[in-house]
Design a protein around this nucleic acid. Structure first.
Lengths: 351, 351
DNA sequence: CTGAAAGCGCTTACAG
DNA sequence: CTGAAAGCGCTTACAG
């Protein structure tokens, strides 16, 4: 027995990738053919119970583990979906991914995650990697699509976008919230607190930013505040929020409230307020967007427009997996209603 | 031309996975053998420049994309490393992953991410998936290892653990910070502010929690505060921090300061303080651990023990990829020094 | 520099 | 219920 142990150790000492047992090894040990091993491992129905047991035992003893590459090549399926994440630092991502993963698992799909965002080339490479893996579908989460994703998705595999509804790509399925409406909710809330000079710290060129900006403008006009409209450039990051808010606070007619493109940027905006010796919400009210856990953290208590993040993740995964399994899916573009979550970064305006 | 377009569309309308072009198609179009296509695509040296150009052009025209599964099977390599993430909600994760990914890319390795944490079975499944993919190495980030990871790692592929140094698994490579020292830094800081009744909101059974707890105890004794030692049960989540802090604040001798196992839990702890009508830092000082971006967010301003997260990610990836490329690597266990980041959740104790 | 051939580890009709 | 055989899309010696 000691000798046997030594032999096995000798094998582990080999250079290069360890030679792992294959179905051929399992077949030999169980005294059956490779085909039968394959069948048994797939839980195929017509394998004699005893044979199956023997095969499973042999596999177990050998420490057999399926080779995903070989399986994919033979089966012409991977049963895995790829998740493309734009920004791992955005707390929205974790909330959505939890739900996506849970639903995918429930439907017996595996998921692999890949993260882009560094630059366009890197993003493209990550997407390419997913496609090379032959994932059967892709879920993208973020406020915009990576360059060229549009074409890649439709041509090569079904995709659903979470959080962003691109009007320019009507053929792509998506699960998003109504950003125009959400921005309106934020403005309504601020106006109800007596604010008039409400500035919008924008998110740049992305589809989501555009809709939130649009919703802000529309709502301002609806309240007869068209003249007070002020959009300053920002981004979906803390940093962008800081810069945008700084600019807004330096406006000749200083705003009394800031509607910021997302929760993360709102953090930066609050820092900018503080750096000017002002305070939230006494001097400046701040409203974010997304309804992430971050906003809810006690010392922050950010008033924000909440998206049904978990629901969005679940629906997206359900739709994609359903489609892959040949279910008839409903409409390709789902748009859920947002809701205002009032906390303590907004207050009645001082006269 | 119109007819050709129609034909191509007809193909896309097929049921099931779309038939994608293979090297065989490329070979035919370029008028060479499959072997040559394979060589050209790998940028092998001895392919005639013109042939190479023709092949590349043909591939481009056909929209050829390598099949990762077939490649892996033929090449006996995947050149990808798997990243196992314990908790996507912990902001530490994003910081570390950014660095890991950047370094891996630099060394021409791909990375795929997988997240566990739901329950032991799910974790085990995620790990298994990575192994089935035949990733060449694994990086695990979190305060503990998934069940059975130990055996899987050593037997099947090299691994390096980020953030947690398991004394029970001396054969596993790791990049971590000195948790005992870090906890000491926190206590020293609090003591220097006059605190004596310093409670520790613990993280449970994990290796990291144990070391931080241990460091706390040692430092308390060093300061002659052995009698004031109070460890309450918590976890690495907001929720755990809330519960732990609640318990600590209900102690007969109420502490004046809380050393919480990590930044996320510290958020919960601050909520607990507030819910008792107390305030941070006037009534209770709070120190976290990790030095995540979360702690630095302005309205939070958490005093915390900072780990060199980015450096840790980079070193871990460098070590793993280096090892895979046959470089001689130094020590398997790197331990970096933490440092105190003082912000505004700690203050001099009131007499 | 180029091609024919074998092999990677699976799956899947097809016979029996 | 079981096995022999072909095939998936690549890579890699081996000849030429």
């Amino acid at each position: 027995m000691a000798a046997e142990g030594a032999e096995e150790n000798g094998r582990a000492a080999e250079v290069g990738p360890v030679a792992r047992p294959t179905i051929r090894d399992v077949a030999t040990r169980a005294g059956v053919s490779k085909s039968l091993v394959s069948l048994a491992l797939q839980n195929a129905p017509r394998v004699a119970p005893q044979t199956r047991a023997a095969i499973l035992a042999a596999a177990e003893e050998l420490g057999y583990r399926r080779n995903a590459a070989a399986h994919a090549l033979g089966a012409h399926r991977t049963r895995t979906i790829g998740v493309f994440v734009l920004d791992l630092h955005n707390p929205l991502t974790a909330d959505v991914l939890d739900a996506v993963q849970a639903e995918a698992r429930r439907r017996d799909y595996r998921t692999i995650i890949v993260v882009g965002g560094e630059d366009a080339a890197a993003e493209r490479a990550e997407l390419e990697k997913l496609l090379e893996f032959r994932v059967e579908g892709i879920i993208a989460v973020g406020h915009r699509l990576p360059d060229g994703a549009d074409a890649a998705f439709t041509a090569d595999c079904p995709a659903v976008i979470i959080g962003s509804d691109h009007r320019s790509t009507p053929h792509l399925a998506s699960v998003s919230n109504d950003d125009v409406m959400g921005a309106g909710l934020a403005v309504d809330h601020l106006v109800s607190l007596g604010h008039e000079r409400i500035a919008c710290v924008d998110g740049g060129p992305s589809a989501v930013a555009r809709d939130r900006r649009r919703g802000y403008r529309t709502a301002m006009r609806r309240h007869g505040l068209g003249d007070a409209i002020a959009v300053v450039k920002g981004s979906f990051t803390e940093d962008g929020g800081y810069r945008g808010a700084s600019q807004a606070l330096d406006l000749p007619e200083r705003p009394t409230a800031l509607f910021v493109v997302n929760d993360l940027a709102a953090m930066g905006a609050m820092a900018a307020v503080e750096d000017r010796g002002l305070s939230v919400p006494d001097d400046i009210s701040v409203v974010g967007y997304d309804g992430t856990r971050l906003a809810g953290i006690r010392p922050i208590g950010l008033t924000t427009v909440g998206q049904p993040l978990q629901q969005m993740g679940t629906q997206a995964a359900a739709r994609l997996c359903g489609q892959l399994d040949g279910e008839v899916c409903g409409q390709a573009r789902t748009r859920l209603p947002p809701s205002l979550i009032e906390r303590r970064t907004t207050a009645r305006v001082l006269r």
